[in-house]
Amino acid sequence: MATEAQGEEGGLVFHPMDQFIVKPLFGDGPVGLFTITNVTLWMALTVIAVVLLMVLGTSKRSTIPGRMQSVGELAYGFIYKMVEDVAGKDAVGFFPYIMTLFMFIVFANFLGLIPMSFTTTSHFAVTVVLALLVFLTVTIVGFVKNGAGFLGLFWVSSAPLALRPILAVIEIISYFVRPVSHSIRLAGNLMAGHAVIKVFAGFAAIAVVSPVSVLAITAMYGLEVLVSFIQAYVFTILTCVYLKDALHPSH
């Protein structure tokens, strides 16, 4: 797509954002609510990858695990321990939910690294929904579990009394900024990395700089592999941190 940097005029033309275009898989119609688009395709592939690893990989239930089962168990243990350590033992009930978020993000990120693929998690539409889900869960759980006591989260009782109203304002602002930063962090990281790779790929059209460009793409790709995992990890651990606030609002 955008790698064809040579424009009609013969100069360098970059289309680094074209990879993020949502388009119908069949036909050329408008993108409606239920249209089967490339989003559908790559999300379906994500589901298939998750099912392959977590369901088919563990289908043998062997006491001595094979490769797939080992990885599945590793993912399970990784997130379970994170939930337990960060959000507390009483947050274990949210483990399937957090596991779903993590598995979806990590597989969407890695599938997005396949050349010519579509990265679903690079879209704000996706990450905003994910972040809002977390935000609503945390807020609802916080009020259900603690009642009005959840507001104590904004009232820093360890600070001097005079400072507390100011801190409360800051805390409230930071609380409502959470879903924004939560979603933009994930989509922004992925979008930026993918766009930069496309830009470097555009430079590859010039024969002189193309070796440098290929090297740069390779380096960026390596970085993106890291970012894919780290952003999934960050998203998940922040979810756990927010959940801890909901369950134990006292500072």
Partner: peptide, 10 residues
């Protein structure tokens, strides 16, 4: 324009 579609499939 694309948000509803993405959100639905998500």
């Amino acid at each position: 324009d694309w948000w509803p579609n993405q959100i639905f499939w998500l």
